[in-house]
Design a protein around this nucleic acid. Structure first.
Length: 202
DNA sequence: GACCGGATTATG
DNA sequence: ATAATCCGGTCA
């Protein structure tokens, strides 16, 4: 199973979010190995993106977000759920991809539909924050094994406060998977076209 | 030092 | 529909 490289993550968050669908997320701690295939992601594209935590600037709490690509950025939402992100682009840009859904690709694999369920299913805690996913043996990403997947796009979930940025179709998911946080709605765009282009709401 | 509001989920 | 439950950003 070939691991994803630094170069893979050193791209715009939208590109990485799209490319991460079908990749394998591996958590190995205390001799216990948990794996899930990524079926849903969202891109958060730095300080200009009004939905991205980078909009607060380079504070202590966002240190990992502004760190080098390929590292983990983990944060707590609503006082109870952890969200796992992969830092993208280059150091200081504050780009990240949120993993919102993983599905089993074999017996014993993990399933989680929704960011909070993903971290719980894989046993990703706050200690995972700042981990280098390119070199760590405890938490890393690997290439997809199976065939290429159809990737759908939609606006991101739960970012209604972000003004016009809320409309950007920066959520990517496998519409055939049952492990996506929200079932594919009627009019979704297919990621076969340029994923960086925003789509209209239906 | 308060106060507010989340990149959510479980339950009624 | 609504509660649960931290914590950082914001403003005093």
């Amino acid at each position: 199973m070939r691991r994803l490289t630094r170069e893979f993550f050193a791209r715009d968050a939208v590109c990485v979010a799209r490319a991460l669908i079908g990749a394998r997320l591996v958590r190995e701690v205390g001799g216990l190995r948990r794996v899930g295939t990524i079926v849903e992601t969202e891109a958060y594209a730095g300080p200009e993106d009004r939905a991205c935590h980078a909009r607060f600037g380079r504070t202590a709490a966002r240190r990992d977000l502004f760190g080098p690509p390929g590292h983990a950025y983990v944060f707590l939402v609503y006082g109870m759920h952890l969200c796992f992100n992969v830092v993208c682009a280059s150091e200081g840009e504050g780009h990240a991809v949120l993993v919102r859904g993983v599905e089993p690709d074999g017996p014993g694999d993990a399933r989680g539909d929704g960011p909070g369920r993903v971290t719980r299913a894989l046993g990703i805690g706050r200690e995972a924050g700042g981990v280098d996913l390119v070199t760590s043996t405890a938490l890393y990403l690997a290439e997809q094994a199976g065939s290429p997947r159809v990737v759908a796009v939609s606006p991101r979930v739960g970012v209604g406060y972000a003004g016009d940025h809320a409309e950007r179709a920066w959520r990517f998911f496998d519409p055939a998977s049952r492990s996506v946080s929200r079932p594919p709605a009627g009019q979704i765009g297919l990621g076969l076209a340029d994923p960086t282009r925003p789509t209209r709401r239906g």
